[in-house]
Write a protein that binds this DNA or RNA. Structure first.
Lengths: 237, 237
DNA sequence: ATCACCTATACAACTAGACAAATGTTATCC
DNA sequence: GGATAACATTTGTCTAGTTGTATAGGTGAT
């Protein structure tokens, strides 16, 4: 008889604990040392179990911090109206944005082209991190034409929402012209921000939003943590 | 596999920011707390990165005030007249040279060719280290035809400047015929002298200087610390 | 004999929080 | 207006805890 290894039973026990809600999603599991004491095994044996669970996306470890219970993948609809706050609150999740950098620079050719600007025109750039229930979901970069929205960086600093900032500057509505989606691997920096392993899969989308007159107002790039997000297309609302 | 620690990537990112001019010389970096938010790590991890940069003399912290940028990577113009002292004093930096070795030997074929000497002719060789504000910038090797400048080693020992030494021997002016630039990785010896890590990027330039009559007077090789120097071409003054 | 499984130990890398010390800013008082 | 006090911000230091990685060795089933 092939007995099941100890580490597998531990993984099953912990998985059951999570399923029973004994550990909240997003919450921290007891430290490996404590778990090894609880199960009466070596720390490495517990690690073997946790590694299995991490592979299945059930938990994710953070060096120096602990092992956390992963949340279910977020459904993120991509359509004519892409609104971060709306998308998440509709799913009953708590959205938040975190500013990484705000800067002004000369537009790269690719960016100038997307925004229909002359080469060498200035743009405002908003780098940030999107979170759902406190967990990082995506990195994004929003680029705005500087001459049309001179004060947008201040507006973004006050209220982290792109929609709100644009509204304050006179754009009541905007729609997504086009979205491109490709798969990438996380760079070290991206992995750091998204709290995933370097080389984990990333969903990269680029898109242009335009006002009702068809004038581009934003060129955006987003890097979703592939394990935590599922993009959905074609469920227009 | 020895992955690069997070703090090291942060140090590199910040160093790059400074090199790109996103933080002015003498200006203040964002507070450690803000940087830790931007990079998504603990404050101590940022401190580790800043400590490294401070060690290299790139930034200096002031308790209660902030962390300030000490110096940008040096802009080193490569043109018709390449003068180490001039180049640096013009940027308000304090140049210095350090003699490593002075020797006389038979010219290698490559060197004889550059100086238009017969094979087997003797050359004087000046190996040295260039510093800006006490920080090593580059390793260099200057090679002179021995028969034309018999006393140049003594002249170089008195005043470390190539320009001054040549002037003393009757060359009032000289111009750069040609400069070649390639990228290398630092050997252990170079890393030691330049106080950089082994395997760091090196800018290697070779060039020939000639007197107004077109006669080659010096064949020079220089190894710049890539992190600390930016070569600029085509901004003749 | 080999291999998966497990133990044991040590150190590196990172997080977390708290408090001290220096500095810069603002309010207050006379 | 100028000195002073109070407060907020920022770097420096310390302690403690957690995960990641490497090395070495033991045990039992096939």
């Amino acid at each position: 008889m092939a007995r099941t290894p100890v580490w597998k039973s531990i993984a099953i026990a912990l998985t059951d604990d999570i399923a029973q809600g004994r550990y909240e999603t997003g919450g921290k599991l007891p430290a490996e040392a404590q778990l090894s004491a609880r199960f009466g095994v070596n720390r490495h044996t517990v690690r073997r179990a946790l590694a299995e669970m991490a592979e299945q996306g059930l938990v994710f470890p953070r060096r120096g911090a602990g092992v956390f219970v992963a949340a279910k993948p977020t459904d993120y609809p991509i359509g004519k109206r892409v609104r971060f706050h709306q998308n998440l609150t509709r799913e009953g999740r708590n959205p938040a944005k975190q500013i990484l950098t705000l800067e002004t620079r000369i537009a790269a050719p690719r960016e100038a082209n997307a925004l229909q600007l002359d080469p060498g025109a200035e743009v405002h750039v908003y780098d940030g991190l999107s979170l759902a229930d406190g967990q990082p979901i995506a990195l994004f970069q929003s680029i705005f034409p500087a001459d049309r929205f001179p004060g947008i960086l201040d507006a973004l600093q006050e209220q982290h929402s792109v929609t709100a900032a644009l509204q304050k500057l006179g754009v009541e509505d905007y729609t997504r012209i086009e979205t491109r989606i490709t798969a990438k691997l996380a760079t070290a920096m991206q992995a750091l921000h998204l709290k995933i392993a370097e080389g984990s899969p990333i969903l990269r989308t680029t898109g242009v939003n335009a006002d009702p007159q068809g004038q581009p107002v934003e060129f955006g790039r987003t890097w979703f943590a592939g394990d935590r997000v599922t993009l959905t297309v074609g469920r227009e609302t």
